[in-house]
Amino acid sequence: MAIDFDIDFILGHINYWLFVILMLTGLYIVVARGNLLKKIVGLNLFQVAVFMLYISMGKIGGGTAPILTGNPDEVYSNPLPHVLILTAIVVGIATTSLGLALIVRINESYGTIEEDEILELDHQKSQSEIIKVAKEASNDS
């Protein structure tokens, strides 16, 4: 399917592309940043950008919010994406609060909230387990 990259198409799609940029920024923060809190911020960013994409689907040019006014000629935007996103926002904040609670606990037991350092500490613990096992094996024989 060929697409005319005319001005209409670009103006009609540029908003999507901008949402994509926002999403990607969020996603990048999540995967590339080592600070646990910042990852959560990144997740929020990512999700909010997705919410924007949803809301933009429901928009009708020249329409108004779907609160009925009684005027029969009024054009309303589609309420369904709004409902979905209301749910999604709540799910998002639920995840965020849980993630933050985990961060607090991690900080208490590891003393850091940097991914690298936590990985290192975990790795040390695994190594010490292996060494312990090896020692026991040599004691046996």
Binding site: V48, S56, G58, G63, A65, V90
Partner: peptide, 11 residues
């Protein structure tokens, strides 16, 4: 701006 007042409120 995109007519989602409820969403805006919640966000």
């Amino acid at each position: 701006l995109m007519d989602a007042v409820d969403v805006a409120f919640t966000e």
